[in-house]
Design a protein around this nucleic acid. Structure first.
Lengths: 147, 147
DNA sequence: TTCGCTGCAAACGGTTTGCACCGCG
DNA sequence: CGCGGTGCAAACCGTTTGCAGCGAA
């Protein structure tokens, strides 16, 4: 099943009593185009040509996060970045390499069953999960093997 | 199996060519005592009486994170907090309630099998994982049921 | 027509940095 | 005794805020 696009985004905003504006569309397009989570400064560069104000950018990201269109994630262990979440992007988790620092997206996490049992056991109703696994990526394993 | 304490902490530092200092012990004790992740400003208050400098605090947390003694986690969707990780604390994941905003620790996540299959499939060597499930906690479910 | 959204510019405060001194190993 | 760790204070810069004007619904 394909992820939601611009049209659904606009409808989603209206459904939640939030207005559809050129700025919000600009941000949504930039997020869709990106393959990695974006910080506000990242986005500022990305949408530079539109003249979109940085303060506005912060306010837009806060709104999109409240509406659960985007989701904040930790980047480089210190700054906050945002990424689209379901149904605006395919669900995925992250694998972070402790050596090279790269983050690799992990689709097909197959955690649904375990998460369901967590939900059943605890009584916590789960909307979605987000996982990070930390370790060594394949490249760094081979690089480390022979110093 | 119990988690590692002060003695092991000191040895761990030495093993990694990092020096054992009163400041680092102070921070370690504060982290052990706390039941929730702490930001640097949090810690600053916690160790106020020792006169530990804030800049030093930032440097200590960076060091402890590099040594994988602590682990940064996102707090309130915007600020970075730290918590001890295995073997200095029991492994646990987080359940974040979208209504009341509280974070509940989840022990016994039973994700090991799924994580192992991720490791096998991807070739990524996993040291540890960290998961957040988002949704509604039991309290907020009952509160929402009858408006 | 209304009220949410935006731009501008100033203020804020968490975080970083340079440097000299201290003290662990 | 050497070099990592620390305190101090200034600088930095990401983020927030107040307010007036604009425009989506």
């Amino acid at each position: 099943m394909p992820t939601w696009g611009e049209k659904e985004f606009m409808q989603y905003l209206r459904d939640h009593r939030a207005r559809v504006t050129p700025n919000r569309l600009t941000v949504f397009r930039a997020m869709q185009k990106s393959t990695k989570p974006l910080t506000v400064p990242d986005l500022a560069i990305e949408v530079e040509d539109t003249g979109l104000n940085t303060a506005t950018l912060y306010r837009i990201m806060e709104t999109l996060a409240d509406l659960e269109i985007v989701h904040p994630v930790l980047q480089d262990h210190q700054s906050v970045a945002y990424e689209l979440i379901e149904p605006f992007a395919r669900h995925h988790d992250h694998m972070v390499c402790r050596q090279c620092g790269r983050t690799i997206d992990l689709y097909n996490c197959r955690l649904d069953e375990a998460v369901k049992s967590i939900s059943d056991d605890s009584g916590f109703r789960v909307d979605f999960h987000q996982m990070e696994v930390h370790g060594l990526c394949p490249d760094c394993q081979t690089a480390t093997r022979r110093p």
